[in-house]
Amino acid sequence: MVTGASRGLGRALAEVLAAKGARVALVAREAGPLADVVAQIRGTGGIAHAVIGDVGDKQAAHRIAGQVQGLVGDVGIAIHNASTLGPLPLRLLLDTECEDLAAVLETNLIGPFRLTKIFAGAMALRGAGTIVHLSSDAAVEPYPRWGAYGVSKAAQDHLSRILAAELAETGVRVLAIDPGEMDTKMHADAIPDADRTALQRPKDVAARIVAMIESSTVLTGARLSAPSWTVTP
Protein backbone atom coordinates (compact mmCIF):
# COMPACT_ATOMS: atom_id res chain seq x y z
CA MET A 1 0.00 0.00 0.00
CA VAL A 2 1.21 3.43 -0.92
CA THR A 3 -0.67 6.52 0.27
CA GLY A 4 -0.54 9.80 -1.59
CA ALA A 5 0.02 7.72 -4.71
CA SER A 6 -1.55 9.93 -7.38
CA ARG A 7 1.55 12.06 -7.92
CA GLY A 8 5.12 12.83 -6.88
CA LEU A 9 7.04 10.34 -4.77
CA GLY A 10 3.96 8.23 -3.97
CA ARG A 11 3.27 7.67 -7.63
CA ALA A 12 6.93 6.85 -8.30
CA LEU A 13 7.01 4.38 -5.38
CA ALA A 14 3.90 2.63 -6.69
CA GLU A 15 5.44 2.41 -10.16
CA VAL A 16 8.73 0.99 -8.90
CA LEU A 17 7.01 -1.56 -6.65
CA ALA A 18 4.63 -2.64 -9.43
CA ALA A 19 7.56 -2.98 -11.85
CA LYS A 20 9.11 -5.37 -9.32
CA GLY A 21 5.98 -7.51 -9.40
CA ALA A 22 4.22 -6.28 -6.26
CA ARG A 23 0.44 -6.02 -6.26
CA VAL A 24 0.07 -2.37 -5.36
CA ALA A 25 -2.87 -0.60 -3.77
CA LEU A 26 -2.62 3.12 -4.48
CA VAL A 27 -4.42 5.38 -2.03
CA ALA A 28 -5.26 9.00 -2.82
CA ARG A 29 -8.08 11.48 -2.35
CA GLU A 30 -8.82 12.38 -5.96
CA ALA A 31 -10.26 9.71 -8.25
CA GLY A 32 -9.19 11.23 -11.57
CA PRO A 33 -5.42 11.54 -11.13
CA LEU A 34 -5.35 8.20 -9.30
CA ALA A 35 -7.15 6.42 -12.13
CA ASP A 36 -4.58 7.76 -14.59
CA VAL A 37 -1.68 6.39 -12.55
CA VAL A 38 -3.36 3.01 -12.09
CA ALA A 39 -4.07 2.80 -15.84
CA GLN A 40 -0.48 3.70 -16.60
CA ILE A 41 0.87 0.97 -14.29
CA ARG A 42 -1.52 -1.60 -15.72
CA GLY A 43 -0.46 -0.52 -19.20
CA THR A 44 3.08 -1.60 -18.41
CA GLY A 45 1.91 -4.99 -17.13
CA GLY A 46 1.82 -4.12 -13.44
CA ILE A 47 -0.91 -4.98 -10.96
CA ALA A 48 -2.39 -1.85 -9.44
CA HIS A 49 -5.63 -0.97 -7.68
CA ALA A 50 -7.10 2.42 -6.89
CA VAL A 51 -8.41 3.10 -3.39
CA ILE A 52 -9.94 6.53 -3.01
CA GLY A 53 -9.72 7.87 0.51
CA ASP A 54 -8.38 10.60 2.74
CA VAL A 55 -5.94 9.33 5.36
CA GLY A 56 -6.76 12.42 7.41
CA ASP A 57 -10.37 11.26 7.79
CA LYS A 58 -10.93 9.09 10.84
CA GLN A 59 -13.96 7.40 9.32
CA ALA A 60 -11.93 6.41 6.27
CA ALA A 61 -9.29 4.27 8.00
CA HIS A 62 -11.08 0.91 7.99
CA ARG A 63 -12.64 1.66 4.61
CA ILE A 64 -9.21 2.22 3.12
CA ALA A 65 -7.66 -0.79 4.85
CA GLY A 66 -10.58 -3.06 3.92
CA GLN A 67 -10.43 -2.10 0.27
CA VAL A 68 -6.65 -2.45 0.19
CA GLN A 69 -6.72 -5.95 1.70
CA GLY A 70 -9.75 -6.93 -0.33
CA LEU A 71 -8.06 -5.94 -3.57
CA VAL A 72 -4.41 -6.94 -3.06
CA GLY A 73 -4.60 -9.34 -0.10
CA ASP A 74 -2.27 -9.38 2.90
CA VAL A 75 -0.17 -6.22 3.00
CA GLY A 76 3.59 -6.80 3.11
CA ILE A 77 4.70 -3.19 2.74
CA ALA A 78 2.76 -0.13 3.90
CA ILE A 79 4.23 3.20 2.83
CA HIS A 80 2.86 6.30 4.53
CA ASN A 81 3.70 8.89 1.93
CA ALA A 82 0.61 11.13 1.90
CA SER A 83 1.18 14.34 3.77
CA THR A 84 0.17 17.97 3.82
CA LEU A 85 2.05 21.18 4.47
CA GLY A 86 -1.04 22.95 5.78
CA PRO A 87 -2.10 26.39 4.55
CA LEU A 88 0.10 28.02 1.87
CA PRO A 89 2.19 30.07 1.80
CA LEU A 90 3.83 28.51 4.86
CA ARG A 91 3.22 30.50 8.02
CA LEU A 92 5.07 31.22 11.21
CA LEU A 93 3.82 29.05 14.07
CA LEU A 94 2.38 32.06 15.89
CA ASP A 95 0.33 32.80 12.76
CA THR A 96 -0.82 29.18 12.42
CA GLU A 97 -4.42 28.60 13.39
CA CYS A 98 -4.86 25.85 15.97
CA GLU A 99 -7.26 24.07 13.62
CA ASP A 100 -4.67 24.12 10.83
CA LEU A 101 -2.04 22.55 13.06
CA ALA A 102 -4.58 19.92 14.14
CA ALA A 103 -5.47 19.19 10.51
CA VAL A 104 -1.80 18.73 9.58
CA LEU A 105 -1.31 16.33 12.51
CA GLU A 106 -4.46 14.47 11.47
CA THR A 107 -3.10 13.77 7.98
CA ASN A 108 0.62 13.42 8.69
CA LEU A 109 0.61 11.69 12.08
CA ILE A 110 -2.72 10.29 13.18
CA GLY A 111 -3.71 9.09 9.70
CA PRO A 112 -0.62 6.89 9.33
CA PHE A 113 -1.07 5.75 12.95
CA ARG A 114 -4.62 4.61 12.26
CA LEU A 115 -3.63 2.62 9.17
CA THR A 116 -0.57 1.16 10.89
CA LYS A 117 -2.76 -0.01 13.77
CA ILE A 118 -4.66 -2.05 11.19
CA PHE A 119 -1.85 -3.35 9.00
CA ALA A 120 0.91 -3.91 11.59
CA GLY A 121 -1.23 -6.28 13.66
CA ALA A 122 -1.71 -8.69 10.79
CA MET A 123 1.96 -8.33 9.82
CA ALA A 124 3.10 -9.14 13.35
CA LEU A 125 1.08 -12.36 13.49
CA ARG A 126 2.39 -13.39 10.07
CA GLY A 127 5.90 -12.51 11.28
CA ALA A 128 6.79 -10.26 8.36
CA GLY A 129 6.11 -6.82 6.99
CA THR A 130 7.53 -3.34 6.58
CA ILE A 131 5.97 -0.04 7.58
CA VAL A 132 7.60 3.02 6.05
CA HIS A 133 6.99 6.57 7.25
CA LEU A 134 8.16 9.24 4.82
CA SER A 135 9.94 11.82 6.91
CA SER A 136 11.70 15.09 6.16
CA ASP A 137 14.70 17.06 7.33
CA ALA A 138 12.04 19.42 8.71
CA ALA A 139 11.53 16.72 11.37
CA VAL A 140 15.02 17.41 12.65
CA GLU A 141 15.85 21.03 11.73
CA PRO A 142 13.67 23.84 13.18
CA TYR A 143 13.03 25.64 9.89
CA PRO A 144 11.01 28.83 10.43
CA ARG A 145 7.57 28.63 8.73
CA TRP A 146 7.70 24.82 8.57
CA GLY A 147 6.23 24.51 12.05
CA ALA A 148 3.08 22.48 11.51
CA TYR A 149 4.72 20.16 9.01
CA GLY A 150 7.96 19.87 11.00
CA VAL A 151 6.12 19.07 14.23
CA SER A 152 4.07 16.39 12.48
CA LYS A 153 7.11 14.77 10.92
CA ALA A 154 9.13 14.88 14.14
CA ALA A 155 6.24 13.19 15.94
CA GLN A 156 5.93 10.64 13.15
CA ASP A 157 9.65 9.84 13.45
CA HIS A 158 9.14 9.09 17.11
CA LEU A 159 5.98 7.13 16.42
CA SER A 160 8.09 5.04 14.09
CA ARG A 161 10.76 4.40 16.73
CA ILE A 162 8.30 3.49 19.47
CA LEU A 163 6.39 1.15 17.17
CA ALA A 164 9.70 -0.48 16.26
CA ALA A 165 10.52 -0.96 19.94
CA GLU A 166 7.09 -2.41 20.73
CA LEU A 167 7.14 -4.72 17.71
CA ALA A 168 10.74 -5.86 18.21
CA GLU A 169 11.11 -9.58 17.44
CA THR A 170 7.73 -9.81 15.71
CA GLY A 171 9.30 -9.64 12.25
CA VAL A 172 7.70 -6.27 11.52
CA ARG A 173 10.14 -3.56 10.43
CA VAL A 174 9.20 0.06 11.05
CA LEU A 175 11.27 2.68 9.24
CA ALA A 176 11.35 6.44 8.84
CA ILE A 177 12.91 7.60 5.59
CA ASP A 178 13.81 11.17 4.71
CA PRO A 179 13.63 11.28 0.90
CA GLY A 180 15.50 14.59 0.57
CA GLU A 181 14.43 17.48 -1.61
CA MET A 182 12.56 16.42 -4.75
CA ASP A 183 10.98 18.07 -7.72
CA THR A 184 7.36 17.56 -6.65
CA LYS A 185 4.20 19.59 -6.34
CA MET A 186 4.70 19.72 -2.59
CA HIS A 187 8.17 21.20 -3.02
CA ALA A 188 6.85 23.78 -5.48
CA ASP A 189 4.05 24.64 -3.05
CA ALA A 190 6.53 25.18 -0.24
CA ILE A 191 9.33 26.86 -2.17
CA PRO A 192 7.84 28.23 -5.42
CA ASP A 193 11.09 29.89 -6.59
CA ALA A 194 13.37 26.88 -6.05
CA ASP A 195 15.84 25.88 -8.75
CA ARG A 196 14.12 22.71 -9.96
CA THR A 197 17.18 21.45 -11.80
CA ALA A 198 18.97 21.09 -8.45
CA LEU A 199 16.26 18.80 -7.08
CA GLN A 200 16.15 15.01 -7.15
CA ARG A 201 13.66 13.30 -9.43
CA PRO A 202 10.97 11.32 -7.52
CA LYS A 203 11.66 8.30 -9.73
CA ASP A 204 15.28 8.09 -8.58
CA VAL A 205 14.35 8.58 -4.93
CA ALA A 206 11.64 5.91 -5.19
CA ALA A 207 14.16 3.42 -6.57
CA ARG A 208 16.47 4.12 -3.62
CA ILE A 209 13.66 3.77 -1.08
CA VAL A 210 12.54 0.46 -2.55
CA ALA A 211 16.16 -0.73 -2.45
CA MET A 212 16.27 0.25 1.23
CA ILE A 213 13.08 -1.71 1.93
CA GLU A 214 14.54 -4.73 0.15
CA SER A 215 17.84 -4.49 2.00
CA SER A 216 18.30 -6.93 4.87
CA THR A 217 20.83 -4.54 6.43
CA VAL A 218 18.14 -1.96 7.13
CA LEU A 219 16.93 -2.74 10.65
CA THR A 220 13.69 -1.83 12.33
CA GLY A 221 13.59 1.51 14.10
CA ALA A 222 16.04 3.08 11.66
CA ARG A 223 15.67 6.63 10.41
CA LEU A 224 17.34 6.78 7.03
CA SER A 225 18.17 9.47 4.55
CA ALA A 226 17.61 8.53 0.93
CA PRO A 227 20.19 10.92 -0.60
CA SER A 228 22.99 9.64 1.62
CA TRP A 229 22.05 5.97 1.34
CA THR A 230 24.21 3.88 -0.90
CA VAL A 231 23.19 0.58 -2.37
CA THR A 232 25.29 -2.14 -0.83
CA PRO A 233 25.71 -5.33 -2.82
Binding site: A61, H62, R63, G66, Q69, G70, G73, D74, V75, I118, G121, A122, A124, L125, R126
Partner: peptide, 13 residues
Protein backbone atom coordinates in the same frame (compact mmCIF):
# COMPACT_ATOMS: atom_id res chain seq x y z
CA UNK B 1 -19.18 1.16 13.54
CA UNK B 2 -16.92 -0.89 11.31
CA UNK B 3 -13.91 -0.47 13.61
CA UNK B 4 -15.78 -2.04 16.51
CA UNK B 5 -16.02 -5.37 14.68
CA UNK B 6 -12.35 -5.77 13.78
CA UNK B 7 -9.80 -7.82 15.68
CA UNK B 8 -6.34 -6.38 16.40
CA UNK B 9 -4.87 -8.58 13.66
CA UNK B 10 -7.56 -8.42 10.99
CA UNK B 11 -6.25 -8.76 7.43
CA UNK B 12 -8.30 -9.74 4.37
CA UNK B 13 -12.00 -8.84 4.67
Amino acid sequence: PLYAVQTAYAARP
